[in-house]
Amino acid sequence: MPSSYPPIPIAHVSTVRVAAAVLLAVGLGAPAAAMAQALADTEPSTTWALGLGVMSAQEPYAGVGRDNTALPLLQFENQYVNLFGPRIEFKLPRLDIGHSQQLNFGIVGQYDGSGYEEGDAPILNAMENRRGGFWAGGAVQWSSSFVDLSAEWLADVSGNSNGQIASLGLERTWRFGNHVLFNPHVGASWQDEKTVDYYFGVRESEARLDRPAYVGEAGVNIEAGVRGVYMFDRHHSVLVGGGVTSLADEIKNSPLVDRSTVNSVYLGYMYRF
């Protein structure tokens, strides 16, 4: 699968380091792989990369500040699989449409550390812990010389939320010389009622005066951002990016949430063997 992925939904942005790793994997790993391929001018066979990333992400929950995280990065890719951090994709046969278009298919899985513990903020006191888990599903991408359109469906196979997520992403990549890759992107992520209710709902047993009971419903988050890569040579590259997500009304209306948008910025270094 080439470098386009749907955005990570905001229910999966948490203070847990694994969630940050997912964001770095999707936001930074794909452009780096695309640049490596562009410089090599050949289809990559097997590639390894190691690096370090730092990320600052805003939380949607009231009273929870920004999460600033540093973490190691690992990437492995060949013609059958692409592994980056806690996310893995098994590539399926692609369909070529002419000389400049193709459809790419994959089976994806990722561990996600979303959720919270009751001590994370006063608004979460006496709430039962909400946990992340393992999500799996399928992805498809229509790639052309002008724009890439991607879609992904994931289900919580760990059984914590029992939810589902469907995402659409649109992006275009510009290459400037042999060193710079610039990639603006927009996307939408639909989360079903089980996902929203699990992470942002308030059960009757958890309700109090400043935190009334709330049943979450399905909603759509809208996201926009940019990614960039500067590759010094075939081995060393610097990765940078950021994005803003407008939360669905069904999330904003939760008594646990005190903002309508969240944002994140990240920076990374990769060494490709």
Rank of each mutant, 00 (worst) to 15 (best):
2 P>G: 14
3 S>D: 11
6 P>L: 11
7 P>K: 14
8 I>T: 15
9 P>F: 09
10 I>S: 15
12 H>S: 13
13 V>N: 13
13 V>S: 14
15 T>V: 13
16 V>Q: 14
21 A>K: 04
21 A>V: 11
25 A>N: 04
26 V>T: 11
27 G>D: 04
31 P>W: 06
34 A>W: 00
36 A>G: 13
38 A>T: 05
41 D>E: 13
43 E>V: 14
44 P>V: 02
46 T>S: 15
54 V>I: 13
59 E>H: 14
60 P>D: 08
64 V>P: 09
67 D>K: 15
67 D>G: 14
69 T>G: 03
70 A>D: 07
71 L>R: 12
73 L>A: 09
79 Q>Y: 06
82 N>Q: 06
83 L>Y: 01
83 L>M: 05
86 P>C: 04
87 R>C: 00
90 F>C: 10
91 K>C: 05
94 R>E: 14
97 I>A: 11
102 Q>I: 05
102 Q>R: 15
104 N>D: 10
108 V>M: 08
111 Y>G: 12
112 D>V: 15
113 G>A: 08
115 G>P: 04
115 G>M: 03
117 E>G: 01
117 E>D: 13
118 E>Y: 02
121 A>T: 09
123 I>L: 08
126 A>Y: 06
127 M>V: 03
128 E>W: 00
128 E>K: 03
129 N>G: 00
129 N>T: 01
130 R>F: 04
130 R>T: 01
130 R>Q: 04
134 F>Q: 02
135 W>P: 07
135 W>Y: 11
136 A>C: 06
140 V>S: 06
141 Q>F: 06
148 D>V: 08
151 A>H: 00
151 A>Q: 00
153 W>P: 00
153 W>I: 15
153 W>G: 13
155 A>N: 09
157 V>K: 07
161 S>N: 09
164 Q>C: 05
164 Q>F: 05
167 S>P: 01
167 S>F: 07
170 L>A: 04
172 R>N: 04
175 R>S: 13
178 N>T: 06
180 V>N: 05
181 L>W: 06
183 N>E: 07
186 V>I: 12
189 S>T: 12
194 K>G: 05
199 Y>Q: 02
199 Y>M: 03
202 V>H: 05
203 R>T: 07
203 R>N: 07
204 E>W: 03
206 E>S: 11
207 A>F: 01
208 R>C: 01
209 L>A: 13
210 D>A: 08
211 R>D: 00
212 P>E: 02
213 A>C: 12
214 Y>T: 10
215 V>F: 09
222 I>M: 15
225 G>A: 10
226 V>I: 14
229 V>F: 00
230 Y>L: 10
231 M>P: 01
231 M>K: 05
237 S>E: 04
238 V>C: 13
241 G>I: 02
241 G>A: 07
247 L>Y: 09
247 L>E: 12
250 E>R: 10
250 E>K: 08
252 K>E: 07
254 S>F: 08
255 P>T: 04
256 L>Q: 05
258 D>P: 06
259 R>P: 11
261 T>R: 14
262 V>C: 11
262 V>H: 08
264 S>R: 15
264 S>M: 15
267 L>G: 15
271 Y>K: 06
